[in-house]
Write a protein that binds this DNA or RNA. Sequence first.
DNA 1: TCAACCCAGATTGTCGACAATCTTTATAAG
DNA 2: CTTATAAAGATTGTCGACAATCTGGGTTGA
Lengths: 227, 227
Amino acid sequence: MEGGQLQAVENNQSLAERLFVTLRGEIVEGQLAAGSKISEPELARRFSASRGSLREALMRLESLGLLERRVHVGARVVDLTERGLLDLYEVREALEGMACRLAAQNRSDEDLTELRQMLARHEQQEELQAGKAYFQPEGDFDFHFRIVQASKNDLLIDTLCNRLYYRVRMYRYQLGMASPRAKRAFREHSHIIEAIEAGDGELAELLMRRHIRASRNNIEKKLTTET
Amino acid sequence: MEGGQLQAVENNQSLAERLFVTLRGEIVEGQLAAGSKISEPELARRFSASRGSLREALMRLESLGLLERRVHVGARVVDLTERGLLDLYEVREALEGMACRLAAQNRSDEDLTELRQMLARHEQQEELQAGKAYFQPEGDFDFHFRIVQASKNDLLIDTLCNRLYYRVRMYRYQLGMASPRAKRAFREHSHIIEAIEAGDGELAELLMRRHIRASRNNIEKKLTTET
DNA sequence: TCAACCCAGATTGTCGACAATCTTTATAAG
DNA sequence: CTTATAAAGATTGTCGACAATCTGGGTTGA
């Protein structure tokens, strides 16, 4: 348990905000173990901050669903369950499907060119490390992320990119989720972009939902056979 | 601006929690006007609470999307825009559609009987006040609410019932949304329940999405003709 | 031996005060 | 008269201390 370095982030923000960002990272990457209890005094000492500022950060983490607080008992990091992971996939299927439908309607030309560039980069990476058998996970995130932004629905963007995003990353880091085969994921992404370019929202939604559901089924199968 | 009565809620909760619930109600019903600035010292005095406790309540409200805070500037109640209302419908279409699909799979027998009872009550009410031309809005909420709970997906339930729910109510109260015709809404609800009972998730999702999209289109048309 | 009760220690909730920052108003220069 | 500058006032962010509550261990009684 090191003396904590606060990330610089943006220097002009509030202390509570920096604490929030730092702790969020530690929870996602598992340095603050899933299921473990949070001691306010201890964490406050570790960052040389007051309990008040720390508490503000904790409450933001709670609203992200990264920890649970109970009155007069304290905060615990959420624990990762198979059920929670599968639930998350179902919500993503619904929301990202809708995001694709809307992106096909509302995308700007700039959105489209950026998506195409991103896809090209992924293809290069894939060819370079063809043997490596898995996709850059961050690249996959970026792709989904970028599509959501093209939907132009602020509530949808906030829900997916600010609220569910970190939960997804937490599962990826700590349950080391099966990443779909690079080749197949690449082709699916490619088809989704084509549907978006063609303005076919119905197809774009269908493809994205199938894409996400395939991942979910993959995980579900792996979990039921392993346990 | 009255001296504020804190709702009893549950007496054994924290002060910040009670402040949160009270303020949430005032924002939803418009007593704290949309778009208006929040003065921490003023509100704290009004409830005879410290600024610290009040700030905790404000932060929870922020995470509900009911107010926006900017560093060193303060909090404002969100303002209601047509765009925001339409965005909200799109997110609900995606999430409640998925909730219906899952409810068809995962509902308990108890869920189903409660839904049927609820529908029966609505039919009675409707016959009683047939001329009144509009549905009890709370009844409609309850119906959607109850379906979501039958989905058994905790993340979905939390997102819809704890996060989006109050935003929906806020728009209903303050923009006095067009409530769909009672007769038609009732029939649509009835068909949705039948699909859920039959375990036909695909149909249930389709019907719910159509149901919500019809409301959205109704609003959209009304807004574009009025302005 | 086991259960209920009680006490001590620690943790969380709440408060008031101080420091940093923003907004507004008044002033002065162009 | 307009614009820029600067001081004053108010608001927000941060802190440390006190009160209310929970947790764990020990004691007492059946």
